[in-house]
Every structure is written in structure tokens, then in C-alpha cells.
Amino acid sequence: MMANSTLVTEFILQVFAKTWELRILLSILFLLVYLGSLLGNLIIIIATTVDHTLNTPMYFFLRNLSILDMGYVSVTVPNACINSLTGHRNISVAGCAAQIFLFLFCACVEIQFLTIMAQDRYVAICKPLLYPMIMNHQFCVRMTLASLLSSIVLASVHTFKTFQLSFCHSNVVPQFFCDMPSLLRLSCSDTFNNKLLLLLTAIGLSGSCFIFIAISYVCILSTVLKVPVKGERGKAFSTCVPHIIVVSVFFSSAAYVYLRPPVVTLEVVQEMTLSVFYTVVPPFLNPIIYSLRNKQIMEAVKKVILRITFIFEYKRKFLSEFSKERELTK
């Protein structure tokens, strides 16, 4: 049914650059950032799972955010790098629909997780006595499930509405992945309902979440300023400010690409550069901002490394003793 609604059978994606040398350089750079994102988030997942002292709501959401970020960055970057290096730019309509659905799903969950984590920090700093009552395990599980289910619904509706359109002008997507705004501009159907739905989602979900995050951090910073110890204030500022910057870049770049008026057109390079700020930057920086500067996480990582080292050393000694016994029996 999806294929029947369009006059094209596949789309052609853009590569990072026209010259081969620049394409290799950018592909290697993106692959390194991708691997760094995977490694940073994987460290957080292992550390928060193995160390039972990190069994708190904050680290529960950190672990979920890290799992999500690994999927979020994997939806676009690996395929784009392979396409850029091999020159294979074609993607089927079904593949494009799958990429749009997964990207929208991950983006919606990311927004909601960042909002819940801002609430967690607000309650922990501004209302510490009520923290165990508000941020209990049942609440955390319910919020996680609500984020996942609402994101599935939103991603499904947007994907279905997008691929009900007809694409007859061109099948060249001016982006390194299948992005909904790019496809809407390629359609020869009336896209008013799609744009209206996109606007309502942006205002209802993204707008409300951004306002909630902003208010939470304003309250946190105002509370922190009342703390007499300068060292504690500096520690709180060093955690809050980078997170505010990443969230602001994520929301502003995504809002500009998804909600800009039709009269505003961008060069392909500008379009792709802007999309990097909401597809690649958050999964790469979130582990650094949230966890790798956190002493508890670093201590947990050290414990995991020591445990792995001990297991390998124990196996090595066991194998060496076993081989000696076999030699003696011969």
C-alpha cells in the first residue's frame, strides 16, 4: 500500500561532500564520533547495571537514555557513512519509511527522557525531602513506558501521513538520511495537513518539554545560588550549563529544520550541517555531560575494569595450571 501511494520506487540520498577526499575525511570523522558515542553510552550502561549503589532514579534514566542514544545515532550515521564511502545513495521507499519512523521515535523519546531527567534533578536539588516519594521506582517505570508508547504513536502517525503523499517532482532527498521535512518538500501532493500535524506535535511535545526543562533549570540554578559553599555551586553550574547548551542546540536546530517557512531555502551543506546538531551531537555529548564527569560513575567504571581484569587474570592462571597438569600426565 505504501508503494502504491508514490510514483517513485526509491529515493536518492545526498553524500557528505562532492570530492572523494573530503568524503573520506568526513566519513572517518563521523565514524569516530559514532564509535565514541557507542563507547561512552555503553560504559554508562555497564557501570549503572553492575554497580548496585547506582540503583537510583537518576541512574535508571541515565541507563535508559544511553540505550536510546545508541539506537538514535545508529539510525542515521552508519548508513550515511557507508553511502558516502561506497557512492551507493539509493534507499527504497520501505527503507526510507523505516528510517523516518525509527528516527522520529528515538527523537520523541529523547525529548521526553531529557525532560524527566530535568525533573529528577529539580526534585533532588529543590525538594530533597520529597525526592523518595516523588521519584519512586513505580513512577520511573510508568514515565518510561508512557514516553515509549506516546513516541510509537507519534512516529507511526507521522510516517503513515508522510507516505500517503505522492512524490513525483524528484526522488533526490537533500539530506544524508530520510528526513520528513525534506520529503514534504519533494511531494507534489497537498502537504498542509502534514505540516499542521508537525506544528501541533512541535508545540504540544517539543515546546512544552523545552519550557519544562528551562523552568526546571532556572529553579535549580536559583536554588544553587543560595548555597554558601562556592565549590558546590561551581560543581552544580558545571553540570547544568553544558546540559542546557546541548538541549538548546538540539531543540533550536531541530525546530529550525522542521518548522521553517517554505520560503526559506537552505543549501544542501547547510541543511546537512544543521541536522548534525540534532542527530549526532546529543548522543555524543550526553555521556560526557551527564556521567563521565560524575565521580560515582567513574568509580563504578573503575570497579568494572578491575572486575574484568580479575576475571581475565584468573582465567589465564587457570589455563596455565591446566596446561601444566596435562604436560605432567603425559
Rank of each mutant, 00 (worst) to 15 (best):
L266K: 06
T159R: 01
V263W: 09
T273D: 08
S189I: 05
P174N: 02
V241E: 06
L274Q: 06
P261G: 07
S170C: 07
D179A: 09
I203Y: 06
I213K: 01
I244N: 03
V173Q: 02
I220Q: 02
T265D: 11
V249P: 06
I215W: 07
Y258W: 15
I244T: 03
S147I: 00
R233L: 08
E267W: 06
A202T: 07
E271P: 09
S252E: 07
K195I: 07
V229T: 10
L198G: 15
C209Y: 01
N171E: 08
T273A: 14
L165Y: 02
I220N: 05
F250W: 11
D190G: 08
T162I: 00
F237C: 04
L186I: 00
P174W: 01
V263I: 14
S253Y: 06
S206A: 13
A146R: 14
S187Q: 05
L148D: 01
C240D: 06
T265G: 11
G204S: 06
S208I: 13
D190H: 05
T144R: 07
F163S: 01
L154P: 03
L200K: 10
L274E: 05
V227E: 13
V257M: 09
F160Q: 08
I245S: 08
V264T: 13
F163T: 02
L154N: 12
E271A: 07
L200S: 12
R233K: 12
R260P: 03
P174K: 05
S170I: 04
L148F: 10
I244P: 01
K161Q: 11
V227K: 10
V269S: 15
S206I: 13
L183P: 02
T191L: 05
V157F: 03
P261Q: 08
T201M: 11
E271K: 10
Y256I: 14
L197R: 09
V247R: 00
P228E: 13
R233V: 10
R233C: 03
P262I: 08
N193Y: 10
N171Y: 02
T144S: 12
G204V: 02
F177V: 10
S170Q: 08
L274Y: 14
S238V: 03
Y258I: 13
P262K: 05
Q175D: 07
F212A: 15
S182Y: 03
K195N: 12
T144A: 08
Y217D: 07
F176R: 03
R260C: 03
N194A: 12
N193G: 04
P181I: 02
L225Q: 15
T239L: 15
V224N: 02
K195R: 15
S182M: 04
L200Q: 14
M272N: 13
F277G: 04
P261W: 06
S151V: 09
S275C: 10
G234L: 15
S170K: 11
R233Y: 06
T162C: 09
V280A: 13
V269A: 11
F176S: 02
S216E: 00
N171G: 08
Y258Q: 10
L205I: 13
L205C: 15
T191E: 04
S248Q: 09
I244D: 00
L145Y: 10
F250N: 05
L266E: 01
A146P: 01
M180Q: 14
T265K: 11
T162Q: 03
T144H: 05
F160P: 02
I215M: 09
V257F: 11
T239C: 10
L197K: 05
L148M: 12
F277E: 04
C209M: 08
V153G: 12
